[in-house]
């Protein structure tokens, strides 16, 4: 009986293996970049890095398309599915309705979307726990601060950025309950993602009020915040990708949101058969969120700070610290 089972198991594995090979041979993964384009030095480019890594490692090619107008989102998603691409990855929340329609029209094709949830049986929705990473850099900010005052500069005032802000405040207070956090949003329009001048102004005003560490979650606006920090001899914290190299000595750390890892994992898991539909929440535990420590900021992070942030990270992963998610109730408890 046991032997029979083993044989059955072996043949099942073999079957699965051949199925995967067949899949790999005729199904090419596809990615649909959004309007920023794949070289936007931010979100889309992160995805591009991830799928490029997949291509280099596996040698599998992928189809890609950069949309230029809103109608092309749905066209591109459908077209990729029609050509037999699998899985089809949509980049960013703006593609949610295109992915949803595509998933309904092509129930046998696997879809994935980053930064948004689409409830369809053949869609993998990848969202990040930005609040967890923000908590960690909040801990570092509070410990690096000499004045007990730290700052936050957000980009466009959308719930996602308030999630960053809320996690950061939570982390700061966790490390130093008496600390003061100044928080400003750059604006209410997409131009707030790319306004370094205003970023610098907001940073200077926070420095004038006594802050000496500022976390910027503001896309291109952050460049102005980091420059202001350097000019004033204060600290800044980067976001999304590792920005420590921008101003070594000024950049305390960066909060990492690994969209590249997410894109890579989607393609990788689809090619080896471990792909699952449903919501994938990537946080500290899954390696989707982290903080950056490299040769550019090693001198700024004291052993005590590292110990504290490592402990906080372990506690969050273990569930001992629950970081509040702003988007769960649109509130940030003080």
């Amino acid at each position: 009986m046991k032997k029979l089972l083993t044989i059955l198991n072996a043949s099942a594995v073999l079957l699965a293996a051949t199925a995967t090979v067949a899949l790999a041979a005729d199904k090419m993964p596809a990615v649909v970049f959004d309007m920023g384009g794949k070289f936007d030095k931010s979100f889309n480019q992160g995805v591009y890095d991830g799928v490029e890594k997949f291509r280099k490692e596996t040698g599998m090619k992928y189809r890609e398309f950069e949309v230029k107008n809103p109608t092309q989102r749905e066209q591109a998603v459908r077209k990729m599915a029609q050509r037999g691409s699998d899985p089809v990855l949509g980049v960013g929340f703006a593609q949610a309705s295109a992915i949803e329609k595509g998933a309904k029209a092509f129930p046998d094709t696997r879809f994935a979307i980053i930064d948004m949830v689409v409830m369809q049986p053949n869609v993998q929705s990848i969202v990040f726990k930005e609040h967890e990473g923000s908590f960690l850099v909040g801990v570092l900010a509070a410990m690096a601060s000499k004045t007990g005052k730290v700052g936050f500069v957000g980009g466009m005032d959308i719930p996602l950025i308030r999630r960053f802000e809320c996690g950061y405040i939570h982390g700061v207070k966790h490390a130093m309950a008496s600390a003061t956090v100044y928080a400003n949003m750059t604006g209410t329009t997409p131009s707030a993602w790319n306004d370094p001048t205003k970023g610098a102004e907001l940073a200077k005003s926070q420095f004038d009020r006594g802050a000496d560490v500022i976390f910027a979650a503001a896309g291109g606006t952050g460049i102005g915040v980091y420059q202001a920090a350097k000019d004033n001899g204060k600290y800044a914290i980067g976001v999304d990708s590792n920005q420590n190299h921008l101003h070594p000595g000024t950049m305390l750390t960066s909060m990492l949101k690994r969209v590249d890892v997410a894109a890579y994992n989607t393609f990788k898991s689809a090619s080896d058969g471990s792909w699952k539909s449903g919501i994938q929440v990537l946080g500290l535990k899954e390696g989707g969120i982290d903080w950056a420590l490299d040769e550019h900021n090693r001198d700024l992070i004291t052993p005590a700070m590292k110990a504290a942030v490592d402990k906080a990270k372990a506690d969050i992963i273990a569930g001992k610290i629950m970081v509040h998610d702003y988007m769960s109730d649109n509130k940030c408890p003080k």
Binding site: F93, A96, D115, M116, D157, I158, P159, T188, T189, N330
Partner: peptide, 11 residues
């Protein structure tokens, strides 16, 4: 962003 946005969504 401020007026006609469907409440509770990012886009």
């Amino acid at each position: 962003v401020n007026v006609v946005i469907k409440p509770g969504q990012m886009s």
